[in-house]
Amino acid sequence: MNEQQTMLADMASALFADLSHGATLAADWGRIEDMGFTGLLLAEESGGFGGGWADAAILFRLAGYHALSLPLVEAVVAARLANDAGFAQHGFGTIAEKAEGQFEQGRFTGVVRGAAWGRNAAFVAAPAPGGGAMLLSVGDAKVEERENPAGEPRDILHFSGAPAATLTVDLFALGAAARSMQAAGALDAALALAVGYVNDRKQFGKPLGKLQAVQQALAVFACEAAAANIAATAVAQALDRGDFDYEVAAAKIRTNIAAGIGTAVAHQAHGAIGFTHEYGLHPLTRRLWSWRSEFGSEQHWSMILGHHVTTADADHYWADMTRRSDATTPSSPGCAGPGEQA
């Protein structure tokens, strides 16, 4: 991390730790906005941090680590898309996973699904039926409230002839990358909880952490969390380069695998206490189970990545992988805190 990223991480982790117990949109969203986090991916001349995806990865990972129950990740992505599309709205935006319907002459009629905190958002970005993304005002929608197993709002929005702005970005891929970054943080947090628990909890006259069977299971978990974290970091690099379909697929597959293994080990290590509502494991594991399905399963992305690598000659398979990391990385645009000189 560079100095500005260190500062971003410090500010974010202090705030998210403070908000980690039942933050609500009504009571706490103002604190997020005061920090200017939603403008992370906006240029400084547009009033933002001027940050890149490497910075977003830090913020999103920490949001996952603290199981932040506010739509910050979605608002950051939506703000960037709205800015790129020149779609001016008051209030925060969100992103949605899917849309079904017709988009004709700048108007959308149909259903947008999986809109995070759609009921509260001013606008929503969703994958457009014919490719690319569209931006819609939530005020034009009839909102059907839903939530994922973690209790995060995932609303269905019904539109009829609503005006929409469009842009060419692959929003589903951006969503997948964002969920990978959040999952990487949540996995590290669940690992920290499990390690702390087995070091405290005594059975057979000694801490559980002294038992080899427990140690080996947590080592497996640590390896999976490490894989998820490196995937989340590397996908941010690809997003900053601008050629990222391969890496997003690879990262979402890998973090999904890690989420499956990590949640199982975390609960096994905790025993019954981890299964209670009072204890802080479920806000992490229920999010991990939810995010594993959101923006594409292992199978979905495996097919996409599989098609990517099988359309080229197999003899270029390795060369394709190495070319992607050899590509010169533009230096990160970096970020500065609000009111700071970059």
Partner: peptide, 24 residues
């Protein structure tokens, strides 16, 4: 074969991640 294509995708994801780790 879709099953083979999906497996190719999964292997690519794991190899890509491991390569990032090993390089790091």
């Amino acid at each position: 074969d879709p099953a083979a294509i999906a497996l190719a995708g999964r292997f690519t994801s794991e190899a890509w991640t491991l390569r990032q780790m090993s390089l790091a």
